[in-house]
Simulated assay, not measured.
Amino acid sequence: MTEVKAGVEYKISIDDNSFLLNSKKFDLLKYINNTGSITEAAKLTKISYRTALNYISKIESNLEIAIVSTQKGGSGGGGSATLTSEGKMILKECKKINAIMELHRDVNEIEANIISIDRPKGIMKIELNPQVQLTIPLNENYNVGDKILALISYDNIFIMLKPQESSIRNIFKGQIIEMKLEGEMIRVKIDIGGTDIFSDITVSATKELNLTLGKEIYIGFKAVSVATLKL
């Protein structure tokens, strides 16, 4: 079952309008879709019927669209309810975001700002800190100045002793500040310009590269390995 992580809010945008969707609001919409009842959905979400109506009202007000369609029934909040096509789209978007998070369980989560967009080339540059900028594929829904969360899986980070010519677009110099055994892998923590990046490599590769604490190395990753979420 798809679950939005508790305490996390996802920004959902429709036609330049947006709102923050958290686990309670997501569960409410999910249960309305499953049960056809706001009353039952509120019970399953563990909120009051009044709170449920307030959630729906705020979402609809922010997006300027209807997300729930109701038919009157008996007293006490009776009747039926269904999600509109826009309401179902919100559920779909949130499930897509959650799928990205589930796919990358061990992932570097780094807040970044979009500093430039090259639409003809289909790329954009994001800044992690004043010393580190990444080039990644363009997301047409983003604009310069947007704050995003960059997600880079630990096993997508390559460690090198010197920069190499390759298809890897993002290569940075860093210093190893922590090494820890995680199962059959070594988890290496690297400082690149004030931002910490984790990489998982094999024990044998660690020995071959003679990786030690304090050693200066280079890390690299392909642009397509970076997933993003708008904050």
Rank of each mutant, 00 (worst) to 15 (best):
K24W: 00
N98Q: 14
S199R: 02
T2M: 04
E40F: 04
K121V: 13
V68N: 03
K125M: 07
I136V: 15
K125V: 12
K162W: 03
P120Y: 01
L209M: 14
D191G: 11
L83V: 14
T228S: 08
V188G: 07
K30A: 05
F172I: 13
G183H: 08
N210W: 00
K96P: 09
G174L: 01
G79Y: 03
S116L: 01
N143E: 10
A150R: 06
L128T: 12
N108L: 02
T82R: 09
K11G: 05
E102A: 09
G122E: 03
E111P: 13
I177R: 09
T51M: 01
V4N: 05
I32L: 00
I190L: 05
G76R: 05
S153T: 14
I176N: 04
E64Y: 08
M160W: 11
K46S: 11
I47H: 01
G194L: 01
V203D: 05
D16S: 15
K173S: 13
L20Y: 12
E3C: 02
E40G: 06
K121I: 13
S199W: 04
F19P: 10
F158H: 11
T84M: 01
I157V: 15
K92M: 06
K173Y: 06
V8F: 09
S80Q: 08
S75R: 11
G77T: 12
I59M: 10
G194Y: 07
I159V: 15
I100F: 07
I32W: 03
K96V: 14
R187L: 07
S199P: 10
K5W: 00
I65G: 00
Y49N: 06
E9A: 12
I157R: 03
N141T: 15
K147W: 00
Y218I: 12
S85E: 12
N34V: 11
E216W: 01
G122L: 00
I12D: 03
M89D: 15
I190F: 06
K215Q: 11
P163V: 10
N17Y: 09
T2C: 00
Y142K: 05
I197D: 01
T206W: 00
Q131D: 13
A41T: 10
K189I: 13
S166Q: 06
I148E: 03
V144Y: 05
V144M: 07
S116Y: 02
D27G: 00
E182F: 11
N156K: 15
K43T: 14
P137C: 06
S153E: 10
L213E: 08
G77D: 04
V188L: 02
I190S: 07
I114N: 05
T135D: 05
F198D: 07
M124P: 13
S75C: 00
E93G: 05
L63T: 12
E102R: 11
D146L: 02
F172M: 07
R105C: 03
L29S: 09
D16I: 11
I32K: 04
S225F: 02
P163C: 04
T51C: 00
L91Y: 09
K24E: 10
T84P: 13
Q175H: 02
D118Y: 07
T135I: 15
E86L: 02
D200L: 09
K222D: 03
G174T: 14
V226N: 04
D118R: 07
L138W: 10
Q175G: 04
I217D: 02
L213W: 01
